[in-house]
C-alpha cells in the first residue's frame, strides 16, 4: 500500500496523521468523507490530497508523529542525579546555615557566583517550612527553580559529621541531606516521587543510618530504583 516516494498513505498513517483511531478513518472512507483514489483494485489515500482536505476542513495535522513518544524512563534517573550531584562525607556543620554553606562550597557543578543566591533561597525555604522529613533525613531545595546552568537534575547527598537540629517532622536532628536541584517541573515531580519511594526502603534507610561512606549508596539506589514496584 505504501510506496517509496511517500505519495500514498496507509489508513494507519492517515489515522496517526490526524490523531484519530484507524476505525474512524475506515468509516470515513466508507462514507465518502475523506478523498480516496482507486489504483487498480486498491483504494489508496494520496498524501497531498489528504493534507489539502484536512486543511480545508480545519483538522489538525500531527507533523511530528513520534517526537514526543520516546520519553524513556531513563531520562529521569535518580541514580544519575545522585551520581551527578555526588556524595559528600564528614561535612562540618552546627546549624542549617553552616550545613548548607559548607555543602555548597563543595559542589563543582554549580557556578561560584550562584552559590550565594542559592544559600539564601535554601535558608528562606527552611524558614517557611522545614524540609526535614524525619529519620534524620532532610531534602533541602529552593522554592522556585533557579536558572542554574544544569543539563538535568543534580541531587548531591551530604553526610554531616554531627547531626544538627533541623526542626524536622519527627523533631529528630538531621544528619543526611538530599539537596534537590532540578531543571523543570516534570523532572522535579519525578525526582520527588523516586525519593519518596527509596526513602521508605529499609535497605536505604539502614545505609543512611550507618553513614556508609564507601559509595555503596549509589549502587543500592540503582538497585531499588530499577526493581519493579
Amino acid at each position: 500500500m505504501t510506496d517509496k516516494a511517500g505519495m500514498y498513505l496507509s489508513q494507519k498513517e492517515v489515522a496517526r496523521l490526524l490523531g484519530l483511531p484507524e476505525v474512524t478513518v475506515q468509516r470515513w472512507i466508507h462514507q465518502g468523507k475523506i478523498p480516496t483514489k482507486t489504483l487498480g483494485k486498491k483504494t489508496v489515500l494520496k498524501k497531498s490530497e489528504i493534507l489539502n482536505w484536512a486543511k480545508a476542513h480545519d483538522l489538525d495535522i500531527k507533523q511530528n508523529q513520534s517526537a514526543q513518544a520516546n520519553n524513556p524512563q531513563s531520562l529521569f534517573s535518580l541514580t544519575s542525579a545522585v551520581e551527578k550531584g555526588g556524595i559528600y562525607v564528614q561535612i562540618d556543620a552546627h546549624d542549617t546555615y553552616s550545613a548548607f554553606e559548607n555543602s555548597l562550597s563543595q559542589f563543582s557543578f554549580l557556578e561560584n557566583e550562584d552559590k550565594k543566591l542559592i544559600l539564601n533561597e535554601l535558608i528562606n525555604r527552611e524558614e517557611l517550612a522545614s524540609t526535614g522529613i524525619g529519620n534524620g533525613i532532610a531534602i533541602p531545595h529552593t522554592r522556585s527553580r533557579l536558572h542554574l546552568n544544569l543539563d538535568s537534575a543534580h541531587i548531591p547527598v551530604i553526610f554531616l559529621k554531627e547531626p544538627i537540629p533541623f526542626n524536622a517532622v519527627d523533631k529528630n536532628p538531621v544528619s543526611v541531606l538530599f539537596m534537590i536541584f532540578t531543571t523543570n517541573v516534570k523532572e522535579h515531580l519525578k525526582m520527588l516521587a523516586k525519593l519518596s519511594y527509596i526513602l521508605q526502603q529499609n535497605k536505604i534507610l539502614q545505609l543512611l543510618a550507618d553513614r556508609n561512606r564507601d559509595g555503596n549508596l549509589i549502587e543500592q539506589i540503582k538497585v531499588v530504583e530499577n526493581e519493579p514496584h
Binding site: 531545595h141 516521587a193 519511594y197
Partner: peptide, 16 residues
Amino acid sequence: DFIFDHTLINSILIEE
C-alpha cells in the same frame, strides 16, 4: 506517586 506516602508531604510546598 508520593502524596500518600507520608514521607515528603510535610516538606513540600504546593508551588514546588
